[in-house]
């Protein structure tokens, strides 16, 4: 088990009242899973991913990643923990605009002072098929290419888990499929665990397990066979 979530709740203030984004949720994620978190907008997908990726903290309950209860870590140690164990792919790519593709991928490594950052980043970009775009700035890349850079940035630190929050939302369907295929390939090749929040059907078709959320609670959880994605 790579993630163990026990009785986690997270509330947000909405005007004068507080609403539950996640309420008393318990679940586990196994090593090497390609887990999809599904559900309508506002059901708590992003909040759950933020909690599982140690970006946000639960109001109640425990989030244990790789045996570490992240709530017990200080802000700085939680950041270091994210850098060493977690990769994140954002919906809007979130690349640093002043840096080239290569430098964007080097960035998480430079935060930990890795001297091989350039070489590892080059290899990661090769792996996502962007060896010709190393020195391009994000503004000169297409949406699919930017998301590939973001994936390279997520895998370059060889994390045990990669979280992707709506990674295909800003892409056309063909590009989206190729991005999901890339993630699935990385999952298959390296055994990296993927947790992806989405409500797109073709992404769910690739999942080893689909969790459906509604109003902050798990509505259903089902394992399903992996099918090939038609391009």
């Amino acid at each position: 088990m790579i993630i163990d979530i026990r009785g986690v709740s997270k509330r947000y203030r909405l005007g004068q009242s507080k609403v539950y984004a996640i309420e008393d949720l318990t679940m586990q994620v196994e090593q090497g899973e390609f887990l999809i978190v599904n559900g309508p907008s506002g059901c708590g997908k992003s909040t759950l991913l933020n909690l599982m990726s140690a970006i946000d903290q639960a109001d109640r309950g425990d989030v244990i990643i790789n045996g570490v209860n992240v709530a017990e870590l200080s802000e700085a140690k939680r950041a270091t923990f994210r850098n060493r164990h977690i990769g994140i792919v954002f919906q809007s790519f979130n690349l640093i605009p002043v840096l080239s593709a290569l430098e964007n991928v080097m960035y998480p490594l430079s935060l930990r002072g890795d001297r091989n950052a350039r070489q590892l980043a080059t290899e990661a970009l090769n792996e996502v098929g962007l060896s010709k775009y190393l020195h391009q700035r994000p503004v000169h890349l297409s949406g699919g290419q930017m998301q590939r850079v973001a994936i390279a940035r997520a895998i370059v630190t060889t994390p045990s888990i990669i979280f992707a929050d709506e990674p295909t939302a800003n892409l056309d369907s063909c590009t989206a499929q190729s991005i999901i295929e890339l993630m699935k390939k990385l999952n298959d090749d390296s055994g990296t665990t993927f947790v992806i929040a989405t409500h797109h059907q073709y992404v769910m078709e690739q999942a080893s397990r689909v969790i459906t959320l509604r109003d902050g609670v798990i509505q259903s959880m089902e394992n399903q066979p992996v099918r090939e994605c038609a391009v």
Partner: peptide
């Protein structure tokens, strides 16, 4: 703000 959030999410400490 969003860029700083990204840096923090990637593992940048408050001190960094």
């Amino acid at each position: 703000t969003r860029e700083i959030g990204t840096i923090r999410a990637l593992g940048g400490t408050p001190l960094q």
